[in-house]
Each structure stands twice: as C-alpha cells, then as structure tokens.
Design a protein around this nucleic acid. Sequence first.
DNA 1: CTAACTTCTTACCATAGGTCAATTTTTATC
DNA 2: GATAAAAATTGACCTATGGTAAGAAGTTAG
Lengths: 190, 190
Amino acid sequence: MEELIKKIKSSIQLSSEAEQYLQSISLEKTFSKGSILIREGQNVNNIYFVTDGCLRSYCTDKKGKEHTLLFGIKNWWISDYIAIHNNESATLTVECLKESNVIQFNAKKLNGILELFPEYEPFQRNLLERHVVSLQKRILNQLQLTASERYDLFLEQYPDIEQYTRNYHIASYLGITQESLSRIRVEKVK
Amino acid sequence: MEELIKKIKSSIQLSSEAEQYLQSISLEKTFSKGSILIREGQNVNNIYFVTDGCLRSYCTDKKGKEHTLLFGIKNWWISDYIAIHNNESATLTVECLKESNVIQFNAKKLNGILELFPEYEPFQRNLLERHVVSLQKRILNQLQLTASERYDLFLEQYPDIEQYTRNYHIASYLGITQESLSRIRVEKVK
DNA sequence: CTAACTTCTTACCATAGGTCAATTTTTATC
DNA sequence: GATAAAAATTGACCTATGGTAAGAAGTTAG
C-alpha cells in the first residue's frame, strides 16, 4: 500500500486525510494461483491494484472459448469495468495466474473519494485517459497487424509475462488459437 | 450549443459561470463533406462535439491502408485522443463524411474547466468511463465474433450510418476488406 | 520417483477472408 | 443529362489462420 501511496503522491498532492481515506477503504490481500477474484454472473464490488504477481480478465463465449481482455501485472488495476460502470453483474472473470499481492478497493467508495477529496481527481483522470489510449491502440493494432506482429508487440509490452502465463492465455489475448501461436513461435526461432 | 448544454445539465448541476466558460472556449462550425478536421502529423488542439452529420477518425498503415477507429455521429465526441493525451502530433486523421455541424473545443481549455468548475467533473468522468466500456466491448467483439457477426452488431449500433459512409469505411472499422464486406452483404440478402 | 494430468507441438486438412483484375453501378461534375 | 470519376461487385485464385487429433513434453501430487 505504501508503494501505491507513493505512486499517487508522485503525480498529485495528497492530503493526509485523503491518504487516511484510501487506507480505510482498502485491504491488502494475497491470492494463490488459480484463485478467482471476480466470477462471471456475480456482483462486482471491488477493483484491484496489483502490487505483485499476474492476473487476467477474460470473457467466455457461447462455445466456451475464453478471450482475454487484460493482463494485470505490477502497478496495474484490474476488475470488470463494464459491470461496474453499467451497474450490472460481471460478464468477465478475473483470475490469478500466479500467487499475487493486490490491494482491494471497494469500487463505489473509491469513486467516493472524488467528492470528499477533489485533489485526487487528476490522478483518477490520468488513469482513465491512459486506459483509453491503450485500448484505442490495441484496437488499431488488431486492425492492421498480423498475428505474428501482434505477438512481437505483446512481448515488448509484457516482457516477463511468459513465465506466468499459459500459451493459450496469450493466444486468447491476441485473438488466435494456441496452435497458431505455437506455429508463430516456431517461425520466430528460425 | 444549447443542446449540448442541455445534455450536460441533464446529468449534472452546471452553474451559469461554468456555462459561460464553456461558451467562451467553444466555436460552432460546419464542415463540408471531405473536410479534414485533424491531419496526421499535425498538432491537435481541438476536440469536437458532433451536433449533426458524420465524421470518422482513422489511421493509415505503411501500406497506405486505412483503419477506422471511430465514427462520430450526433452527440459523440471525436478527436485524436492518443495525440492529446500523450502530447504528441496526430497519428490519426479526422475526416468529415457528410456535411456536419460540430462544436469545436480547445482541448486544454476544456480540461481546464475541471479546476475552475469542479462541478463539471462527474460529466467528464462519465464520458470517459463510457468510452472505456465501449472500447473494451469492441475488443471483446473483435476477439470472439466473425466478420459477419461484427457487421450485424455494427448495424445495430449505427443503424443509419450506411447512408453517409462508403463501403470501405465500414470494412476498415470491422477489420476486413471492402470485398469481404460486399460478400457478407450478399449472404445476408439470401 | 512415478503416475496422472495438463499443456504444447506437429501434421493434416478446412475455411474465412485477402488479393487482383475485370465489370457494373453509383456518384459527382460540368 | 452526358460524361468522367469513384465505388461496389464479382470471379478466380491465394494465404493466414482454424480445427482436429495424436503424440511429446511439462507440471503436479502423492
């Protein structure tokens, strides 16, 4: 939690009252590999800040195939944003890929900080804006790059992630099958 | 502009001073079909609220192929968000597909409203959050749906857009060629 | 260490969608 | 309204990626 506070303070002025409030609505937790933090169909109350480890959020289609929306690694936030914003039950599952430390925040209370401590707003906004930018870039990449190029880019963006993920986690993020990813890997080695 | 103000007031309390400020940083404009509002490589200072018409933002890859990021129709905002957030020059082009009325805002000054009139913040945040949700959904759709299914969904989301767009605009949004879209259309008729 | 299970690789064939080029249709211009 | 220009369609062929299945390699639990 200290690290997160430090991170926040490096971009905005945070009063000790606001810091206090953040402490009061958060909870440090450790999840073991395979734990499900958010389950499809259930209510979503929390959002998680990853201090260590690796998680992913994914949806499951009618055929049971999984599609990864996001990998949550150190210093990322992860939750089912769609559910929270629309006040619906989860359409995503958030799963722990290796033992991870997270800070759990009640999503509503975290939003509440903006009324209580408006000073926090620029931090929150910057986070959202960065998220928009990364999603837009991902869409553009999906539109213009081949599977192999998207894989290269993925490795740049998540250099150390392969040790925590299964092949099919990455494939389902790139929008290809694990078999295709396996073939792409073979090609790279040559 | 009145319509936009009304829209804002329907979701938040807006003081007349804040309203005044919005007026002062905005400019109603009409663009004719084919106009370029933002050009790749140039500085991006403005963001546009569409009151009528149809625009699109797209990028161009090394082969000269265009990829549509967004269609801007009535009540949407359009700009090169990536450039604004990263303070870079435009990687996108924003083009007018039919004669359109927009309200042009200076992007920096529009952000400035948050410090001057914090009451505006929930409106801004809601906009950003909705944007995140729609981008996330688009990514998930791209991962799990066929081109034909994506086209169906597109028609649901933009029911009247086909009268303003060229076939290849839509194809480049869906991530397929115009020839493929043409074939998909033929299949639908059957 | 071994057995059981999971994941990865490989070979084969199938298919969605891409490419190119010719033709038709639509749209814009004078 | 005639002409030119742009866009859409179509057909033949091609390519990237998918599906299936079997075996190899890793991983996990006793």
